[in-house]
């Protein structure tokens, strides 16, 4: 386990009153994910085979690998979003702080409240204002949103996402009125607002320009202080910049399932990969 952030000890709750996203108040939550023999299927097609992997809390873990290696599929299995595709399913065990997310009687809805997600393309709800987009998780649950508490939550989440200064004067404008990079940060604020322990990011920068990408990468580093961040990326340099640990996936041929080849601290994996295939990929000889 090479989590860069120290694993905090439990502290007494400070209660709900102000609802801040202050790291100190979330110290108790861990967000340690363990994958054991995970297989993902699309119908009868096995897309990801037998992945066992530890994802440390409060750190950025990057999934890298060539297209079609199943890294996004595996990511979506972690919050049980994989199974919403018709015919798709996953088996094996994925535990979050020891609780099996695929256990009997576990409601995927509950899993997704604990494991948030940011998508490849920014997807704010077009019919909602910026403010309502941040609160979307609560609005969806039918919770109140007009109050001062809501205002505070909006501000703290938008600050968190480094978006507050840019949008504080137009919170009632539709979310779609923002630029691509701003929209993606809005989506991060939206994901943070439901207080997950884990943030999954599926190539969050692939549709963004370099400056916006940099802003999001910086944000990822910060978020890792309080959340377990798992990011799928095509961009090797990005993985090197933002991640503490890297998992390399590959696929041996068309129709074959993707497999985990190697995982370890990013620095080690990049400088001294143990498996030749990893070195080839990192050196740009493949993929």
């Amino acid at each position: 386990m090479t989590a860069t952030a120290p694993i905090p000890t439990a502290t007494p709750s400070l209660g709900l009153a102000a609802l801040p996203i202050d790291p100190d108040q979330r110290k108790g939550a861990l967000g340690q994910i363990s994958l054991r023999g995970v297989n993902c299927y699309y119908g009868s097609h096995l897309a990801v085979a037998d992945v066992s992997l530890e994802i440390p809390p409060r750190a950025v873990t990057a999934f890298i690998g060539p297209s079609g290696c199943g890294k996004s599929t595996l990511l979506r299995a972690i919050n049980r979003l994989h199974e919403v595709i018709l015919g798709a399913r996953a088996d094996g065990s994925i535990t979050l702080d020891g609780a099996n997310l695929y256990g009997n009687g576990v409601d995927p809805v509950a899993v997704r409240s604990r494991v948030g997600m940011v998508f490849q393309k920014a997807n704010p709800f077009p019919a909602m204002s910026i403010r309502d987009n941040v609160l979307a998780g609560l609005i969806i649950r039918g919770q109140r949103r007009g109050s001062k508490v809501g205002d505070d939550l909006v501000e703290s989440c938008l600050r968190r996402a480094h978006l507050w200064d840019e949008v504080k004067d137009r919170l009632r404008k539709p979310g779609g009125s923002l630029s691509g990079g701003q929209q993606q940060r809005l989506c991060i604020a939206r994901a943070v607002a439901v207080r997950p322990e884990v943030l999954l990011m599926d190539e969050p920068c692939s549709a963004l320009d370099p400056i916006s990408t940099l802003a999001i990468e910086e944000l990822m580093r910060e978020l890792a202080r309080d959340y377990t961040v798992v990011v799928v990326t095509h961009n090797m340099a990005q993985a090197g910049r933002v991640s503490d640990r890297t998992a390399f996936f590959s696929v041996s041929g068309a129709g074959q399932p993707g497999r985990l080849i190697e995982a370890g601290p990013t620095a080690d994996l990049f400088s001294a990969p143990k498996v030749p295939a990893t070195r080839d990929y990192i050196d740009g000889r493949f993929g």
Binding site: T11, A99, N100, G105, R195
Partner: peptide, 24 residues
């Protein structure tokens, strides 16, 4: 959410269950 459900082999880390409860 999930920890509250009966779960074989849950509660591994010391205090993890309590901690999650306290913080969320």
């Amino acid at each position: 959410s999930v920890t509250a459900l009966p779960m074989g082999g849950g509660h591994t880390g010391p205090g993890s269950d309590f901690a999650a409860d306290a913080a969320v």
